[in-house]
Write a protein that binds this DNA or RNA. Structure first.
Lengths: 212, 212
DNA sequence: TGTACATCAGTGAACGCGCGTTCACTGATGTAC
DNA sequence: TGTACATCAGTGAACGCGCGTTCACTGATGTAC
C-alpha cells in the first residue's frame, strides 16, 4: 500500500509516478489487467483522479510502462539464472526454467501486463526491444545446449527458444489460472516444467536416454 | 450476426438463448472475455437489455455456459482427432496436437471463455467434469504412447498429460497474443508444437533419435 | 539574502458514457375443459 | 371448436455505479538576478 492522502503532508506527492505504478501492480494482482482502473490507482496513492494524467498519457500508458519494466526485470532474472551457462549448459538451462516460473509466480502483475494486457507496439514502442532481450536469453541458452550435438541434427535455435518459451508459458499460465488445479493430481508447476524440459533435452540427444 | 430487432416480426424472439450465446462469441472474438458485455449482446440479438435475464442468472452465467459448451466441443474435437489411436499412437497423437491448435485458432471465443475468463467452479459447476473429459483424451493418448517403453521408464501419465497440455496451451496463447509475432522469425504455431512434440517423444524413447 | 516570476504537480468539479441489474408491465403462447 | 386462464418471454424505464478524461484552478517549488 502506498501513502494515503491523510498521510501526506505536502501538496505535492513527491513520488507519485512510482506510487501509481506500485498501486497498479497491487490492483492487477487482485483483479487482473482488465480489472485495473486509473481511478482506483489514484485513490490508492491518495491523489485525485486527475493527478495520474501529469505522469501518464492515459490508462494504456501505465500498463505499457508496467509491461516494459516487467520485461526488463524478466530479462535480468533470466540472465542472472543463466549465469553464462555455468557450471554447464544443462544445469544453467534448468535454472533458467525455474527462474521463469518464479517470475511468473512472484510477480503475476508484471507477467499479466507483459502477456495478457494486449498492449500494442504503438502504445509501448519499447516493448519489442525489451521483450526481445528476454527471448535472447532463451536463444542463447538453447544455442549453448545444442552445441554438443552435430550441426546437422540441431534444430533452429529460434525454434528451440519457442519450444521452451511455450512450455514455460503454458505451465505458468495453466497453473496461475488453476486450470490444472481443477484436476485431482497434486503436481507442482516446477515439477511439470522441469521433467518436461528433461525429456525434451533427451529428445535432442544432449542427455542420455534412460535405457542407455 | 444474429437477428436485429427490426428483422424480428413477433414479440417473442424464438431462440434468444442461443442468439445471446452466439452474440457473446462474436463479442469475445472482437474484444476478449472482459470486453464482452451483456448489454451489447442483447443489442446484437435485437432485444432489450433486460431480456437476457430470462435465460441467464447474470453475466457470469453466460460466460460459464460458453466455457462448458466450449469444453464439450473441445473434448469431442480431441477425441475425434485421437480416433482410437489409429493407425498408430504417434500419428494419432500428432493429430491431437494439431486439433488442439485448430480449436484455439478457429474458436478463440470459446478458448478464452475456457481459460481466461476466470470462472469459478461455483459459477459453473459442470466445468470440472467437462474439462476433465478433455484432459482425459490427453491422458489416454499419453498412456497409449508410453505403452511401448518399459514400465519403469514411463513417466506418470498425468505428468505427460500436463507436459502436452502446457506445450499446446503455451503455443496457442503465445501465438494468439502475437507475443511471438513480435519477433522477427516467421514460424507457425503448428511448426512449433509439432516439432516440440517430436523432440519430446524422442526423449521418451518412443521415437528413434536422429543419430540412431 | 531577498524577491519576482515561471514552471511544476497537484485539486476538485464536471462531462458523457455505458454498464449490470431490477421492476412492474404486457403481448404471445399453450393448455384444460 | 371455442374460451378462460396460467405461464412464458419479452419491454422500457429507471437505479446506482464507477469509469476515463478534461478543464480552469492553485499551492509549492525552483531559478534568475
Amino acid at each position: 500500500m502506498t501513502k494515503r492522502k491523510s498521510e501526506r503532508s505536502s501538496y505535492h506527492h513527491g513520488n507519485l509516478k512510482e506510487a501509481l505504478l506500485q498501486a497498479a501492480r497491487e490492483l492487477i494482482n487482485d483483479k487482473g489487467t482488465h480489472g485495473f482502473t486509473l481511478a482506483e490507482a489514484a485513490r490508492h496513492a491518495g491523489v485525485s483522479p486527475a493527478a495520474p494524467y501529469r505522469h501518464f498519457k492515459d490508462r494504456n500508458e501505465i500498463l505499457g510502462a508496467l509491461a516494459i519494466e516487467g520485461f526488463e526485470r524478466f530479462a535480468v532474472a533470466l540472465e542472472v539464472a543463466w549465469e553464462g551457462g555455468r557450471p554447464d549448459a544443462i544445469t544453467a538451462f534448468t535454472r533458467v526454467g525455474r527462474a521463469y516460473l518464479v517470475f511468473a509466480r512472484d510477480d503475476p502483475a508484471a507477467y499479466k501486463a507483459m502477456f495478457e494486457a494486449g498492449i500494442t507496439l504503438d502504445e509501448a514502442p519499447g516493448l519489442r526491444l525489451v521483450s526481445g532481450r528476454a527471448f535472447d536469453v532463451l536463444r542463447t541458452s538453447a544455442s549453448a545446449i545444442v552445441e554438443r550435438i552435430p550441426v546437422v541434427q540441431r534444430p533452429p535455435v529460434d525454434l528451440m527458444g519457442f519450444h521452451i518459451w511455450a512450455l514455460s508459458h503454458g505451465t505458468a499460465t495453466l497453473f496461475a489460472e488453476r486450470s490444472l488445479g481443477r484436476g485431482r493430481v497434486p503436481i507442482s508447476a516446477d515439477d511439470v516444467l522441469e521433467s518436461g524440459v528433461l525429456i525434451y533435452l533427451r529428445g535432442l540427444g544432449v542427455l542420455p536416454l534412460l535405457d542407455e
